[in-house]
Design a protein around this nucleic acid. Structure first.
Length: 414
RNA sequence: GCGGGUGUAGCUCAGUCGGUUAGAGCGCCAGAUUGUGGCUCUGGAGGUCGCCGGUUCAAUUCCGGUCACUCGCCCCA
């Protein structure tokens, strides 16, 4: 095709795609609001440090996926690869620890330099929720339930499975990680190349390796629960119990882990098998160490992010457009009169499109294509009589009525 | 970053065992219907066969490279 393509891994979103994504965003905002969340819009770029520090210098995101550059002032800048770090930075910048807890929702583009696939882009979009300043397991329950409700309101909840796990508190996590390193280190030769690398960079990730040889080794790896402190076990039990109280079904998945060190306790993902390798649609967990690591106070947090594109892909059908009323003035005098008539209808809450070009036949064709329910025909005859012709495009019939009666007549239809 | 597949009209796709005018359906435009759509009929526009190079008398077709998409890995939403 032409040379004018969007840059690799980016795309133009319009029409049906745009409506799908709009629907997901709207469902998210509406649901999150009922949980007391307020909007926080952070910049789409930050000083590189904001992301590099909490994500860890050796993590994949930092080493190969960030869009980083230095600006004209020589500052190291990075396009956000996720929301949490930026939200945490905003939390610190604004001194929000004065009013704990805070419930913050965000959505917008994020950027990762990756090889694109279906449901995976270099610029993609996320919905994101962070609950900062509460360390109770019931907060985790609420956060997960909220994600569940979003999926429910989008009617895609049956396409998705909630995988749930705990990493325990920091002590548990460290113990478990050490045990894994010891165990996998002893079986290093049996591991795939990828997993041998993971042993250094991200040992817990070996647990969910897809390599068959790895799986054999993983089978006999030390079980997570043996490394958990009693407090961690209790915490997790309350999360499970709370989810049952809210009727949110879940699957315990002890291989579900988070690579980053600041994650503690609850980890969860909503996974679908409808999107190939891009199965995770919403993922999140508890991060009790993050804010401190960024140089802020020691404040616990719990959050999750959802991939807009992936969620949009799961919707059965694209939401339909608002059905407009199309007003069709014929002749110069009518064109002018139609301006104010359209304003009246809009003020009454209708979506109004004015079509001023072409013959009536053409305009009616266009109106039908635009999904209009009614056409208001305003020609010389109507103008002279101070009337309009209102055509019902679904029924195919029409009536003549006084111009002033139009708003009421249309109100009866909606 | 690694390995595989694909790239023909706005969309979905045929086709050319290398040969001169590249097709269909849908969509679009016009007409049958001077101010009345959705059905039907008739006609029309629209393609450097992704791009660059090589082989050849001749390349959309074969080969190489490149770009994009796609499947898997890595990683993640």
């Amino acid at each position: 095709m032409g040379k004018l393509q969007p840059a690799r891994g980016t795309r133009d979103i319009f029409g049906e795609d745009a409506r799908r994504m709009e629907a997901v965003t709207a469902a998210f905002e509406a649901t999150a609001r009922t949980y007391g969340f307020q909007l926080l819009a952070t910049p789409i770029f930050e000083f590189t440090e904001v992301f590099a520090r909490p994500l860890g210098e050796s993590s994949d995101i930092v080493t190969k996926e960030m869009y980083s550059f230095s600006d004209r002032g020589g500052e190291a800048i990075t396009l956000r690869p996720e929301f949490t770090a930026g939200v945490a930075r905003a939390f610190i910048s604004a001194g929000m620890q004065q009013s704990l807890p805070v419930r913050l929702m965000s959505h917008g583009p994020v950027f990762r330099y990756e090889r694109p696939q279906k449901g995976r882009y270099r610029q993609f979009h996320q919905i994101n929720a962070e609950f900062i300043g509460s360390e109770t397991p019931e907060t985790d329950v609420e956060m997960i339930t909220m994600a569940w409700r979003v999926l429910e309101s989008l009617d895609i909840v049956d396409k998705v499975t909630l995988h749930l796990n705990t990493l325990g508190d920091r002590e548990s996590r460290t113990v478990y990680r050490d045990r894994l390193v010891t165990y996998f280190g002893a079986h290093k030769a049996a591991l795939s190349q990828d997993s041998q690398r993971r042993l250094d960079t991200n040992p817990m990730r070996i647990l969910d390796s897809k390599d068959e040889g790895d799986r054999v080794v993983v089978e006999k790896a030390p079980p997570l629960d043996e490394s958990l402190t009693q407090a961690s076990l209790d915490f997790y039990a309350r999360v499970e119990d709370g989810l049952r109280a809210c009727d949110v079904p879940f699957t315990r998945d002890t291989r579900l882990v988070r690579g980053l060190d600041y994650y503690t306790h609850t980890a969860f993902e909503f996974i679908t098998d409808a999107l190939g390798a891009q199965g995770t649609v919403i993922g999140g967990g508890r991060y009790d160490g993050l804010i401190e690591q960024l140089g802020g106070p020691s404040v616990p947090g719990m959050g999750w992010a959802g991939g807009l594109e992936r969620l949009a892909l799961l919707l059965d059908a694209a939401p339909s457009v608002q059905r407009p009323v199309v007003i069709m003035p014929m002749g110069d005098a009518a064109v002018r009169a139609a301006l104010s008539l359209a304003e009246d209808l809009r003020a009454a809450g209708h979506t109004v499109i004015a079509d001023r070009s072409g013959n009536l036949k053409k305009r009616l064709t266009r109106a039908a294509k635009a999904g209009a329910n009614h056409a208001v025909i305003l020609g010389e005859d109507e103008l002279a009589a101070d009337r309009v012709t209102l055509r019902n495009l679904d029924a195919g019939d029409q009536e003549s009525l006084p111009r002033k009666a139009l708003t009421d007549r249309l109100a009866a239809w909606s």
